[in-house]
Structures are given as structure tokens and as C-alpha cells.
Design a protein around this nucleic acid. Structure first.
Lengths: 324, 324
DNA sequence: GCGCATGTTGCAATCGATTGCCTGCGGGGG
DNA sequence: CCCCCGCAGGCAATCGATTGCAACATGCGC
């Protein structure tokens, strides 16, 4: 029995080249010997690894694990695995990690880091590397991507507050170098305008990062400025928690004195006091859909880039109430 | 120039076999051509992949990501990468995943799933597969492992409560099929005895899982039983949150009516109301140390198995107070 | 009865690196 | 002056699978 024949018998696609009796014999023998194909040898020959690179900023960011699971759960049935690498938002590290993934011959990349600009990715895409962006958009939109509809999410938050009777609604936005920071702010501004509310630049403050500290600092300065308002849309749950802290530090209550809406619905946000009303982003679905797009692009290389927008939902809890 | 010569020049270990001038020329050429060695071809030849398998129950469990980062951060400088697989605590899946990792020719395994029994792991270890256990202990302790000193952690919690003046201290333990469930309970019992406190079996209840629901159920039944006590050591932060819920449902306050201590110090436990006093386990360090043990076993295959116990610390917040 | 088509299997190249062995060259010592 | 030793580098096998091509057998049609 020749290895070539065995190889053909073992591969369902080529099994028809082998007589059914020998195929059966090979399958029997494989089972008897507990034969396990060596993926390394196969990859060397076929130049495919059944592996995709998953580039994330930091696994310990609570938003990330659900997305990773979404990716893994979609890839697994298709026979693919994910290599996970953390960049810690360091551009140099990101480049190094991506090159390392390419050396490992990954069949595609899912990039979930959030910076806006990224010449390397566009270049790789032009070189024919299969890439899907998750959670971020890039320049011309030529690269397939999956993101939450962040603008719509901001609008959901504003709509909810307006429905409760709020008219002066602040926004604590994030770094404008981040796709999320930019779009959520834009969505807030549009929603304010759509409701015919006054667009007061004083109601808009910006964090240098999506952290509680920055949220407390930015929102605290807004509180101290003397501007009047009764509700705030935070660009991120962490920022909302910072708002909680800033309120507590000033003896103000939520939702009594101030309604707060977060963004993302991280784990445990339902356990906060008050439980945080927030815009839920289905991160698992973002990952799953990104993986689907990537698999699609393997199946049909010619397919044009598709951008998927996932609709967020509003989760109403206890941090929002009608104004006093 | 022959590929063999180039190979030797590129590899620091064999570079001395090549004259320094040719070595220099090769290095120059490699840089000029942006040569990148193919890890797949190398692995096929050397039967090493510079890769370890990391077996975890579920990435979305908040305790897991820090451990994964600990592993990754230690492996990276040594040139190793980690394949991460989730088992969802399904024994069959765990076996399948581990076999898949072996097919991928990982150089070693770090297994961080928590069930107590595991014949496969012992068998693999006997076959010479390099394995390190994280967060769990196995039978005879012949396999190197890294765990938090869970018994000592329980004792820290009891000591703290006793120092506050509590004398009747309950324990909500977890599944006794889990290493953590078993040992934390044992540590609690020892500590109670060491303090000369009454060992009342009625103060001990057990959850079927480390979840808020189970914690609320088990602790609720204890509250409803009429047994007197003023404090509880929960075997897990999630269980402690369940205790919060059970207290709230009965109109009891924490820490006014009942002191609660958690276990693990998951993210956001400092943001709870009240902020949770808990036994902090350095999960990052568990992962890092497990990775170190594994690298050690690569460097020196003969080394005897070592078991590392990491000492937890008590983080005192607002869920504990002297008894009323 | 011969030729050709079809179906099955074997041969050998290939993927890209590593490594044991051998060769050839040069220098130093007898 | 010759021999031997050591160093540098080339040769070729090897890892384990895949795959184009060739070869062979069988069977059918003319």
C-alpha cells in the first residue's frame, strides 16, 4: 500500500480517485493504528494552515473575551483555529505580532484593535492577505469589517433620556483617535439635533482614554463648571463608572440628581449600584460575524468587501430616571 | 552560497561552524531580502514548534484572562507562543482539544481546567508529555503544578472575621469535585478549629456550581434555616454576590447584619456595593509561574515535578464589619 | 483481436528548513 | 617535502504529507 493511495483515501475530496474497497481498507487501518495526520507536514505542502490570526488589544479587557469566543466558536466547526495575540495598543507590537502571524502562515487575520489609522493593514489587504476588521473601521472601507452601529447606540441612549424628560444631556466622549470615540460622539450630536435640543458645546467633554479615572476627571470638570444638565451619555461603561465616582465625590446621587447611561454592557454592570443603564453591544456576535466574513472570503476570494453593522440595544436599569 | 551554510549562519547556535565573513554576508543578504524563516518547515524537521497548548475552561470567565496573559507574557520572551483552547468544562471536549493540540505538536501543555480527576493527563505525563497544571491539583502530585494556597486563603478570611469579633462564621462552599471547592472548604474547617470556634455542620452549605444563583440559593437556605451566625466566607466572589442577593431579598444589610467575604478578587469587586472584602488570588502570577515551570521542564527534562503554592492576600473593603 | 477509454495505483517531486557526513583546502609539524 | 589535522562549506537525507503525471489493468467498442 502506497502512502499516496492512503493519502487520497483519507481525504474525502480525493477519495473518489481510489476504489471503494481500498479506501475502506485504508480507513480501517488508520483507525486500527490510531493514525493522526500531521498538520505541520500538511501545511508545509499545501501552504494552508487552517489557522487565523486574531489580533486584540488586551485579553484582560472585559469586552474582548466574548468576541474571542465568538470568533472561536464560528471557526471551530469549519476546522479553523485562532492564534490570539495581544498588542496592548502598542503600534510597534501590533506590527511585530502581525508579521509573526504571517510567518506562521495564518490563512487570514481578524484585527480587533481600535486605532483609526493603519497603513500596514491596508497594505496587507492590497497584497491579497485576507483580513476582517472587528470593532473598527478603516479609511476607505475597502476592507471587510464588523462593527456595532455606534452612532445608533448613542442615539438609543439619547432617545431614552429624552423620553424620560431630559432636555440638557451631556456627553463624555473618548479619544477621537479611536473609531468608537469618534462615532459615538457623532451619533450623540446627531441625536441631539434630531430631537431639536440645543447643541451646547459646553455639554461635551472628552476623555483621553476609556478609563474610570479619565471619566471621573472629565465628568468632574463638567460638574464643577456650573453648566446645567440632568443626564449624561458616557461613551463607555468604564467612563460611566467614573461618572458614578465623580457624582459620589460631590455628594450627588444617581439617578436622583443625574441620570447616567453607559456603553457596551460589560460584565457586572447589572451588579453596580445603581445598576447601569447602558447600550449593549453584542461582542460575541461581532466576533462571530467577523469570523463568518473571513470564512466567506476563503470560500470566495473574489467577493467584494462587505461591512456589517450590528445594531446595539438599550438595556434599561436603574441609573436613569426622569429629571428632578 | 548553499542553503545549508545560510541555515547555519542564521542560527546563533551553529554560527560558529561558519566563518565570520560568510556569516556576515548571509546576515546581510537575509536583511536585504527581508528573509523570514518558515516556522512550519522548521517544525517539521525539528519536531519542535515553540508552542504550548493552554487549556482553559472558558475565556469569558473573568478569572481566566489574567492567567492567560501571565502565561503569554512569560512565554513570549522565550520565543514561545500559546495555543488557547476552551473546554467549557466538558470532559469530552477537553480530551478532543488536548488531542488536537498534540496533533499540532505543541511542545508542552498548561492545563487550567479545574476538575479533580483526569486519567488522561496522568497518562500523557507518563508518556513524557510536558505538562503543568494551573489552578488545580491532581492525585499524586507527580505532575508539576501552580495553585493558589486555597486553604491559607480561607484561613485569611476566617482570621479577619474573627479579628472583627465574629464567632459564628458560615461557609458557602463549592462543588467538591473541584479542587478549589474542596480545599477552600477544608481550609475553612481548619481555621475554625484553630480558633477554637464551635464546628457546627449547620454552618456549612454547598453550591453545585460557582454561580450567583447557586450562591443565593444555598446561602438563602442557610438564612432561612434559623441558624444563628454573623458572617460568611464564600468560596468564590460569584457566590459572595449571590449572598448579597439573598440578603437583599430578605431585607438584610451587609455588612450591618452580615459580613461577607469573597474569594478570588475578580474585576469590579471593588465597585460592588458594598465593595467586597475578598481573598485575592494572583491569577496573572499563577499563569506566569506555570509558564516558568513549563519552560524549566523544557530546559531540564530530568527535573523532578515541583508544586508551587502561591500565597493569596486579603483585600479588606466594605462588606465586613464587627458583628452588631 | 486490437485500440482506446476509464479507473486505480505507484512514482517522484515538492513544500523549506535542519543536520550528519563528507570533501577540499590550507597550515603546521615531523 | 609530505602528512595529517582542523576548519569551512557543500551534499543529500530527512521531517510527513500532497499531488501531477505516468503506468498499469480492465473492459468495452469497433
Amino acid at each position: 500500500m502506497h502512502v499516496a493511495t492512503a493519502s487520497r483515501a483519507l481525504n474525502p475530496d480525493t477519495r473518489s480517485l481510489v476504489s471503494s474497497t481500498t479506501a475502506e481498507r485504508v480507513l480501517q487501518a488508520a483507525k486500527a493504528l490510531d493514525y493522526r495526520p500531521n498538520p505541520i507536514a500538511r501545511s508545509l505542502r499545501t501552504a494552508r494552515t487552517e489557522t487565523v490570526g486574531l489580533v486584540i488589544p488586551d485579553l484582560t479587557n472585559p469586552l474582548v473575551p466574548p468576541m474571542v469566543r465568538g470568533v472561536a466558536d464560528v471557526l471551530a466547526p469549519a476546522g479553523y483555529d485562532a492564534w490570539i495575540v495581544n498588542t496592548d495598543n502598542d503600534p510597534d507590537r501590533e506590527i511585530a505580532q502581525i508579521e509573526s502571524l504571517r510567518d506562521k502562515q495564518v490563512d487570514g487575520l481578524i484585527v480587533a484593535t481600535a486605532r483609526l489609522e493603519h497603513p500596514l493593514l491596508e497594505q496587507l489587504h492590497d497584497e491579497g492577505v485576507r483580513i476582517v476588521l472587528a470593532n473598527r473601521l478603516l479609511g476607505a472601507g475597502r476592507i471587510p469589517s464588523v462593527t456595532a452601529d455606534n452612532a445608533a447606540g448613542s442615539a438609543l441612549a439619547v432617545d431614552h433620556l429624552v423620553a424620560l424628560g431630559h432636555r440638557r444631556i451631556a456627553h463624555v466622549s473618548g479619544p477621537q483617535t479611536l473609531s468608537t470615540g469618534l462615532v459615538r460622539r457623532r451619533g450623540y450630536l446627531h441625536a441631539i439635533r434630531d430631537h431639536g435640543l440645543p447643541e451646547d458645546p459646553e455639554l461635551l467633554v472628552t476623555c483621553a482614554a476609556w478609563t474610570e479615572e479619565e471619566g471621573a476627571r472629565a465628568f468632574g470638570s463638567l460638574l464643577d463648571s456650573g453648566v446645567e444638565f440632568t443626564a449624561v451619555v458616557a461613551g463607555h461603561d468604564r467612563v460611566a463608572l467614573g461618572c458614578y465616582d465623580a457624582l459620589a465625590a460631590r455628594g450627588l446621587s444617581c439617578p436622583g440628581d443625574m441620570s447616567v447611561v453607559g456603553f457596551n454592557d460589560m460584565p457586572f454592570m447589572d451588579k453596580m449600584r445603581p445598576a447601569l443603564t447602558t447600550v449593549r453591544v453584542a461582542h460575541y456576535e461581532v466576533g462571530a460575524e467577523a469570523a463568518r466574513l473571513l470564512l466567506d472570503s476563503f470560500a470566495d476570494p473574489g467577493r467584494p468587501a462587505r461591512g456589517v453593522l450590528l445594531q446595539p440595544t438599550l438595556v434599561i436599569r436603574s441609573s436613569t430616571a426622569p429629571p428632578a
